[in-house]
């Protein structure tokens, strides 16, 4: 479904590419965890999938069609189909839980409808259902800055769910959370993944979580793919190779 073909990314003003000649593909139903040290290229990799980060060389393909050859409309479609969650949640401050979740529909609606907040009853109902799905027990009208880290990430997941995604991307979604909350968020991600038969690709620092939840692990080092396999094959030797200098 998603294919990287010889993808390299070089940021302006840097000598070393963030991703080097990366070729990999992902299929429906896979729950992939991406491991690697800070600066290994994990965030760049995740952002290339939905085109937030343009590639310098190579192509990223969705169903055999290259992102760079897609029309703006098709690119928009890719983003709509991709639910993305972030380390710092990236919620809109001073807006309520339900308002934040409804922004997940922005890609589906006309500009004036977004501007004026014209959401029909089905859409509002979907937002409330998303709150239920992520087991968020706060008032939907509560402002997001008053929530805990775990609650904020649940709002971010609900925002992604309302997009009705086919792909779920996570850029270190549990890095700012305590271990207990991190595990609960991973449970939620896996449950949602299974219910909706998604492709989920998630950056994570915690190898334990990756081994527990992933169906496949990939590891990056200095922008290169150094491991791609089943979680049980990610042994101490690979661990050392991934995290040591």
């Amino acid at each position: 479904m998603i294919k990287f073909e010889n993808v390299s990314v070089l940021y302006p003003g840097t000598a070393e590419p963030a991703l080097k000649d990366l070729s990999i593909h992902f299929n429906q139903g896979e729950f992939v965890c991406v491991l690697g040290k800070s600066g290994a290229g994990k965030s760049t990799f995740i952002r290339c999938i939905n085109g937030l980060q343009p590639v310098s060389e190579g192509t990223v393909k969705w169903n055999d069609k290259s992102l760079s050859e897609m029309s703006p409309k098709e690119n928009l479609e890719v983003r709509r189909k991709t639910g993305m969650i972030f380390q710092h949640f990236n919620l809109i401050p001073r807006m309520s839980v339900v308002q934040n979740i409804l922004t997940g529909l922005f890609g589906y609606k006309k500009s004036y409808e977004n501007l004026l907040g014209l959401f029909n009853s089905n859409e509002r109902m979907s937002a409330l259902e998303a709150i239920d799905q992520v087991e968020l027990t706060v008032e939907p009208t509560r402002r997001v800055e008053n929530l805990s880290g775990g609650q904020k990430q649940r709002v971010a997941i609900a925002r992604a769910l309302i997009q009705n995604p086919k792909v779920f991307l996570g850029d270190e979604p549990v890095a700012s959370l305590d271990p207990g909350t991190a595990e609960r968020i991973f449970h939620l991600l896996k449950e949602t993944h299974l219910k909706r038969n998604l492709v989920s690709i998630i950056n994570v620092h915690d190898v334990g979580l990756a081994k527990k939840f992933a169906t496949r692990i990939i590891a990056l080092k200095k922008g290169k793919l150094i491991f791609d396999g089943a979680p049980e094959k990610f042994d101490e030797k690979v661990y050392a190779e991934t995290y040591n200098q």
């Binding site: 937030l52 928009l76 972030f86 922005f106 925002r159």
Partner: peptide, 11 residues
Amino acid sequence: GPMEAMSAVGA
């Protein structure tokens, strides 16, 4: 961050 999130939802 929120700008990136809005790009990601296709706004």
